[in-house]
Design a protein around this nucleic acid. Structure first.
Length: 493
RNA sequence: GGCGGCGUAGCCAAGUGGUAAGGCAGAGGUCUGCAAAACCUUUAUUCAGCGGUUCAAAUCCGCUCGCCGCCUCCA
């Protein structure tokens, strides 16, 4: 039982061996705060949230750093458009990001540094690079000279000559090589700036991540994550800067999540098939979105569509319904701390007992295999089925049965905590889903309750015709009645 | 053109050498006055196609077909 992770750098799954035993350092590229986050950001952040949680669950003392890039061309452009200071834009979207991530149930990283709080560190690295001959100043800018770093492009597996051959790279006159990239940009009038040895300016994109990761995690650390699209140029450039400056390996395991497609098409602003997290959460429950993201492996592409989200919600409802049933049984009843003995249980109890015994090992096995959340969810669904069966077949709850139910309930809390799921009280979550659906029907809850009473009276009088009439009428309006020995409840279909 | 990935049931999706998880949808059954919910059973002799390696392949190798991503800001 050992964690294996797919490392983009080697293209293979490798056993995770921490740099410092018992500890794990992880840096994930956060957002450039110039706009609201879209569902691609949602996926990336949920994925790394799970990785963070799982590493912690696996016993590592994790330092998780996720930055805000709060100075960049796009932020400046946006500020100019609106006629406000860049800081206004950055702060607004930092706040929006925090709100979105909180709604998606993300755990807070250990540190969430901002690029602009590390300008001094950035300048220090650039000075080192210049001193070592890896960078050069040119008319107020500073560029990294890619030819001085032989390992350049080792992450993306490209080579310099071919990239230049098909070059869509503009040949900046200030650059010696078109592939050189900016470490520092001289500021134009009206732009935000910081004082530097090369005049007033601001950091280029990429260098802030080198500076912040080094500050909080050291020159070499375990994990660096981000979307696949960051492999080139962002991560490639980070490697070049950091390794050239420090003379040692930068990151040991590179992790990259796959893209989100929309209705099987690449998501892009130009296609107009672009959804912000806020737009999606107007329509779907945040936990449903998270569950949907976890239903596929993090490196695979995932297709966002109403149908797929609806299916995810149906699956999540199944689990929550099972948990709600357990909670109802456990509510107010004392449970024995003793483990039930198998001899005293019916066959479905023995099966459940076995599922309980294997749940954590199987869950861990799935997660240890490159964070295979889809497989982990499969394990949970099998447990749901065994639980439902046990509940359905058990009429009277003996102390042993209650203990078993309590135990399985605790395991759902434990695994749910790793996946960021099932934190809500199941009855409340289900009620929330019902309420959301109820917004789409044209009949009030009071009216439904009144009809249910009328129906049960009719049924008591054995007037089934009238009773069925009411049931069918409600069904036509999308209301599904659920009869049980305790009475009749309803839900929106 | 260069680099990389994918193709598993109606749909979504695990599975990297040992004989196809799970979810959704569907069908039959138990329950029910009849239903619904829940539960049970069932739905891929087969993993795009063709060859090869092997005692054994969805899994490894080669070729073909189809789809996609990156190479420009991007999670």
């Amino acid at each position: 039982m050992a964690l294996r992770v797919y490392n983009t750098l080697t293209g293979e799954k490798e056993h995770f061996v921490p740099l410092v035993p018992g500890k794990a350092g992880m840096y994930v590229c956060g957002v450039t705060v110039y706009d609201y986050c879209h569902i691609g950001h949602a996926r990336a952040n949920v994925v790394f949230d799970i990785i963070f949680r799982y590493l912690t669950y696996a016993g590592y003392d994790v330092t998780y750093v996720r930055n805000y890039t709060d100075i960049d061309d796009k932020i400046i452009n946006r500020a100019n458009q609106e006629g406000v200071d860049y800081r206004t834009i950055a702060d607004r979207y930092i706040q929006a990001f925090d709100e979105d991530m909180a709604r998606l149930g993300l755990a807070k990283p250990t540190v969430e540094p901002k690029a602009t709080d590390h300008i001094g560190d950035i300048i220090a690295i650039i000075e080192t690079l210049i001193a070592k001959g890896h960078a050069y100043a040119s008319e107020g800018d500073v560029y990294f000279a890619v030819e001085t770093f032989p390992a350049y492009l080792k992450l993306s597996g490209r080579n310099l000559e071919e990239m230049q051959a098909g070059a869509r790279v503009e040949v900046g006159e200030k650059k010696r090589n078109p592939m050189d990239f900016a470490l520092w940009k001289g500021s134009k009038p009206g732009e935000p700036w910081w004082q530097s040895p090369w005049g007033q300016g601001r950091p280029g994109w990429h260098i802030e991540c080198s500076a912040m990761s080094m500050e909080f995690l050291g020159k070499t650390f375990d994990f660096h994550g981000g979307g696949k699209d960051l492999i080139f140029p962002h991560h490639e450039n980070e490697i070049a800067q950091s390794e050239a400056a420090n003379g040692c390996q930068f990151v040991r395991y590179w992790l990259h999540n796959g893209f989100v497609n929309i209705n099987s098409e690449k998501m892009s602003k130009s296609l107009g098939n672009f959804f912000t997290i806020r737009q999606v959460l107007d329509k779907f429950d945040p936990e449903t979105l998270r569950f949907f993201i976890l239903s596929a492996h993090y490196r695979s592409p995932i297709d966002f569509s109403d149908q797929n989200l609806d299916e995810a919600q149906a699956g999540l409802e199944r689990i929550y319904a099972c948990l709600a049933a357990m909670d109802e049984i456990l509510d107010g009843r004392p449970t024995s701390a003793e483990l039930p003995t198998v001899e005293s249980l019916p066959p479905s109890g023995e099966e459940l007992s076995e599922k309980i015994r294997l749940l954590i090992p199987r869950f861990v096995e799935a997660m240890d295999d490159d964070f295979n959340t889809a497989q982990a969810l499969g394990v949970l669904f099998e447990t749901v089925r065994a639980s439902n069966r046990f509940l359905a077949e058990t009429g009277e709850y003996s102390p042993v049965a209650l203990s078993l139910i309590a135990q399985i309930r605790r395991l759902f809390t434990e695994t749910g905590n790793v996946l960021g799921l099932f934190a809500r009280r199941p009855a409340d979550w289900l009620a929330g889903i019902q309420a959301a659906k109820a917004g789409q029907i044209d009949i009030s809850a009071d009216e439904i309750e009144r009809l249910i009473v009328e129906r049960s009276e009719a049924r008591k009088a054995r007037d089934f015709k009238r009773g069925d009439e009411i049931r069918d009428m409600l069904l036509a309006k999308g209301i599904q009645l659920l009869d049980s020995p305790q009475g009749t409840s309803w839900k929106v279909k």
